[in-house]
Simulated scan of single mutants.
Amino acid sequence: MAETTSRILALLGLLQVHRQWSGPELAERLGVTERTLRRDIERLRDLGYRVEAERGSSGGYRLEAGTQLPPLLLSDEEAVAMAIGLRVTASQGLVDGEQTSLSALAKFEQVLPAALRERVNALASVVELAAPGSAAVATGLLGQVALACRDRERLRFAYTSGSGDETRRSVEPHSLVSAQRRWLLVAWDRERSDWRTFRVDRMSDFFGTRVHFAPRELPADDAAAFVARTISTLRELHSGEVVLKMTHDAMTRRFGQYGAEAWAEGETTVWPIRAATLEGLLSSLAWVPVDIEYELRGSPEFLALARSAAGNMLRAVDASRTQ
């Protein structure tokens, strides 16, 4: 009986970490015959697990959602990762994330062994959470995208760009990355034949195609490195310099770490600015306090935009005086 129970738990663990297994694959992994495998599948079904079976060369066994939540089988590492993830959820911009994650965490940590609870507390004590202000993402959508990444399932969705343009996308999802208080999907864009990042909060009309794909090699060490490189590239599309009429020492005393990239130029300080668009570059000037004089350096297009914006502001002020 103990051997049978261990084998069924091993079978459950395999079904939970992979979308679909063929019968021969599962039998080989467990070291049993396919007849024994079928009996073990029936035992799982009797316990409330909905295991679907499909015939044919592309068929196999997979664990589907049922009418109620059956027990999950987690390794020690998975249990620790889940507890840490629940603690982080509230600060990661998930809709209703704080209350649902705290409720789930209370139930989850109640059944954690003491040794695992100590590991969770130790990790949580050295993890710094991102600042608030994340774009809200529905937990259901994030979960669907995560499953598509795991199962290598093509996705289709509507995507709204930063400029407000909406396009339809068909992608092969690779990974989800949390960066700059945003959830980003790293995926191969099938129509553009290139790797892209998509903000999950800008995705809509989402659905899975149930079409699976062979994995592609990411042009980076991992998804996080790819996102970091993409963000860095976007930042450097446009650049300029703000020459502040104050010494570098004075700037450092007043602004601290915000002047880390600035450098001294005689009695003035040069503060570099970068953005994905010229408008974004212009918005960086709002950071400069009104009591500090400065000059601008940059491309003719950037200087022309700044001149036009300044003219609009002056006209707006003059118009208010005549009312």
Results as ranks from 00 to 15, higher is better:
Ser193Val: 15
Ala224Pro: 01
Gln144Ala: 11
Met251Leu: 13
Arg254Ile: 08
Ser178Trp: 13
Val127Asn: 05
Leu73Tyr: 01
Asp221Met: 13
Val111Gln: 15
Ala114Cys: 07
Ser6Trp: 13
Val288Lys: 06
Val200Trp: 03
Arg117Val: 02
Glu217Pro: 13
Ala65Ile: 06
Arg253Ala: 11
Ala187Lys: 01
Leu105Tyr: 09
Val290Pro: 05
Trp183Val: 08
Arg229Glu: 14
Val288Asn: 04
Thr247Ile: 07
Glu98Ala: 14
Gly93Ala: 08
Ser320Asn: 14
Ala79Ile: 02
Asp194Gln: 08
Ser299Thr: 15
Ala306Arg: 03
Leu176Trp: 13
Arg87Asp: 05
His238Lys: 07
Glu25Trp: 13
Val288Trp: 02
Pro173Ser: 10
Leu112Glu: 01
Trp271Gly: 01
Asp189Gln: 12
Leu72Met: 09
Ser91Leu: 11
Ala81Gly: 12
Arg297Thr: 10
Pro71Gly: 10
Arg216Val: 04
Glu98Arg: 09
Val137Cys: 04
Leu155Phe: 10
Arg45Phe: 00
Ala224Ile: 04
Ser170Gly: 11
Ala27Ser: 11
Arg43Thr: 04
Arg19Asn: 12
Trp287His: 11
Glu25Arg: 10
Ile292Asp: 02
Ser284Met: 06
Tyr294Gln: 01
Thr89Cys: 11
Pro219His: 07
Trp183Thr: 07
Ile273His: 00
